[in-house]
């Protein structure tokens, strides 16, 4: 039993009983959470930006940083762990923002759109989400229960 802590641009998965997969303080970043109830596997990627075309080197070094490279890598890893990727449950958290009438700073919204587009291309879609708005989120998921628990400073924890 251990904690798998994912930083910005990290992805990872676990099927060990009692493990907690966790990522801290999602601002405009989005956590894509993939659950396989059959094998009790939990996967997560902490996506920071929508599109890897802005920096291919970074995408090679840290594919989880971008929606278009991170999600396929996570699917590949979960598939190699014996998960049936067609049956994964998807949940999303993050993509917060401060409103910018000029639209330049709406990275949270762009991240969410990019993630959903990628998932859609794989025939997947979220069954639950806590996205947008203006608060930061910490996400933790237990392999035992598959429960996705969110927390934010000054708010009681909640589940999605």
């Amino acid at each position: 039993m251990s904690n798998l802590i994912l930083g910005v641009g990290d992805f990872g998965a676990s099927n060990s009983p009692g493990d907690i997969v966790k990522t801290f303080a999602l601002g405009s970043c989005v956590a894509v959470i993939l659950l396989d109830p059959g094998t009790r596997s939990v996967g997560m990627v902490h996506v920071a930006l929508p599109d890897s075309s802005i920096n291919r080197d970074k995408a090679k070094e840290r594919p989880g940083y971008f929606a278009d490279t991170g999600i396929p890598m996570l699917l590949k890893q979960m598939s190699s762990m014996g998960c049936n990727v067609r049956k994964l449950t998807v949940k999303l958290a993050g993509g917060a923002q401060i409103m910018d009438p000029n639209n330049t700073f709406n990275i949270g919204k762009r991240n969410i759109l990019a993630v959903k587009k990628l998932l859609w291309q794989h025939g997947m879609g979220p069954v639950a989400e806590d996205i947008g708005a203006n608060y930061s989120r910490t996400v933790s998921v237990s392999t035992n229960t598959g429960e996705v628990v969110l927390s934010s400073p000054g708010r009681p924890p909640w589940k999605i």
């Binding site: 910005v8 405009s28 970043c29 930061s136 400073p153």
Partner: peptide, 14 residues
């Protein structure tokens, strides 16, 4: 704050 580096409960509350 967007990058997740705030100072707690006031993060993005501006």
């Amino acid at each position: 704050m967007m990058g997740g580096g705030g100072t707690g409960s006031d993060t993005l509350q501006y």
